[in-house]
Write a protein that binds this DNA or RNA. Structure first.
Lengths: 207, 207
DNA sequence: AGGTAGATAGCACATCTGCACTATTCTACA
DNA sequence: TGTAGAATAGTGCAGATGTGCTATCTACCT
C-alpha cells in the first residue's frame, strides 16, 4: 500500500497545524504537507508522487479558489479533493461539489466530525458531503450554460470523443450542421477547441 | 424541483420489484422505471427526460456490465449511477468505482441499508458508501495503461483541453515532440483523436 | 560493445477542425 | 401575422491535428 500523501492548503497557520495533527493522529503513516496558498499547494503537489488527498480552504483572504477547482480536478484526476469552508451556504456547497470535488466540509463542525469526514473520503475512496442541516437538494436545473437541446446532444457525443462525422451519423444530420453546433457551443462555453469543451463539460457535469 | 426519474436494471424480477417498492416508500414522487437488461435500460433512459439515477445490477446472467459502465457514464454525465452486486470483492468494487460510478452497493446488505445508501446518493448529490468491511484502500498503482511518464504528462494536459502548442509551452519542449507523444498515446489507448483520448482518460481515471 | 527504448527535434502530407458567411425551413411567441 | 430563435445545409479558408519518415542523445540491459 502506497503511503497517503495529503496536502493541506489554508492561510491560517493555526488551523492548518491543528488539522495536520488531527489527521496524523488517525493516520500516522500519512505524509502531510502544508501550503499557505493555493498556488503553493499546486507547486508542492507537482513535486514528488501524486497526492492522494487535497484539503483546501475555500477562501484565501477575501479570494475564493472556486474558479480554480475545476482545473485542479482536471489536473489531479485520481486525487481526492476536499474543500473546507467557513460558510454553510447550501448553494455554494452545491456549486463547489458540481465541480467534481469529493467533499465540502464546514469548518464550523467539530474537529472530530471534520476528521471523520476526511477519513471517510480517504478510506472509502469516495465522496461525501457534509453540512449539518442539509436536507433535499435543489432542482438541479440551474442554468446548464444556456446550451440549446441540440447543442447538448452534440456536446454529449463530443465529450465521448466522437468526431464531427461520427456525431453527424449518430444524430442523423449533416457534418456541416454538426460544425455549426460545435462552433456555437464552443463560443457559449468560452473555449476554442473541442477537447477544451469536453474538459469543461466533464468538469462542470454538463453534457 | 424536478421529479426524480430512477431506472432500475436487474434481471431478477423479484429483487427489482422489491427495490422499486422500497424506493417508492421513501421517495413517493419518484418515477421508477424497471428494465431487465442493460440494453433495455439504455433504451428506456434515452426516451423521455434524462434519468436522475441508474441502479444497475453488476451481473446479468453470467455477464458483467462492467465494460459498459464507462460508456454509460459518458453518455449520462449528470445521472447518478449506482451499481449493485452480489459480490463483496474489494478490488472489483474499486475497479467499478474508478469508472466514474457514484456508488457500489452490496446486495448482501439489509434492504434498509441499501435504500439508505441509494437515498444518500440521490439526496446528497454526491455521497456514497459501501461495503461493510472496507478499510484501507489499495495502492491504486494498477497498470495505468502502460503509458510512459512523458506520455502521461501530455495526456494530463491534453485531457485538460490544452492544444499541442500549449502543452509544448507547459512542458518546455517542442510542439513536434508533443505530437510524437500524442500519436504514441493515441495508439496505446486505441483511439484516433485527442478528444477521444481525453474521454477515455477521464472515463478510466487515467491521466 | 551492441541492442533496445524513451525523449528530443524536424519535415511533408492529408485530413480535421474552427470560423466567417449565406441561405432555407420550422416552431414558438407576441 | 410577423419576428426571433433554432436547426438545417452549404462553401471557402486558415490553422490545428495525426501519421510517416529520419535522426540524435541518454539510459539501461545483455
Amino acid at each position: 500500500m502506497r503511503a497517503d500523501r495529503i496536502v493541506i492548503a489554508d492561510d491560517h497557520p493555526v488551523f492548518r497545524e491543528g488539522l495536520r495533527r488531527l489527521i496524523q493522529g488517525t493516520a500516522s503513516n500519512a505524509e502531510v504537507i502544508e501550503a499557505d496558498t493555493f498556488r503553493d499547494m499546486i507547486q508542492l503537489a507537482r513535486e514528488g508522487p501524486v497526492p492522494t488527498t487535497f484539503i483546501v480552504d475555500l477562501m484565501f483572504g477575501d479570494r475564493s479558489v472556486e474558479t480554480s477547482l475545476s482545473a485542479l480536478r482536471l489536473e489531479f484526476c485520481r486525487t481526492s479533493i476536499i474543500v473546507l469552508s467557513m460558510v454553510d451556504d447550501r448553494t455554494v456547497a452545491e456549486r463547489i461539489l458540481s465541480k467534481g470535488v469529493d467533499g465540502f466540509i464546514s469548518k464550523t463542525l467539530s474537529p472530530r466530525e471534520i476528521v471523520a469526514a476526511i477519513a471517510a473520503v480517504r478510506n472509502g475512496d469516495q465522496v461525501l458531503l457534509l453540512e449539518p442541516t442539509f436536507s433535499a437538494l435543489s432542482d438541479r436545473d440551474d442554468e446548464p450554460a444556456a446550451l440549446t437541446r441540440r447543442q447538448r446532444d452534440v456536446l454529449r457525443l463530443l465529450t465521448a470523443g466522437k468526431t464531427n462525422k461520427e456525431i453527424a451519423q449518430a444524430l442523423q444530420i449533416s457534418p456541416f450542421t454538426v460544425r455549426i453546433h460545435v462552433s456555437a457551443l464552443l463560443k457559449t462555453l468560452g473555449v476554442s477547441s473541442r477537447t477544451a469543451a469536453a474538459a469543461k463539460a466533464t468538469a462542470y457535469g454538463l453534457a
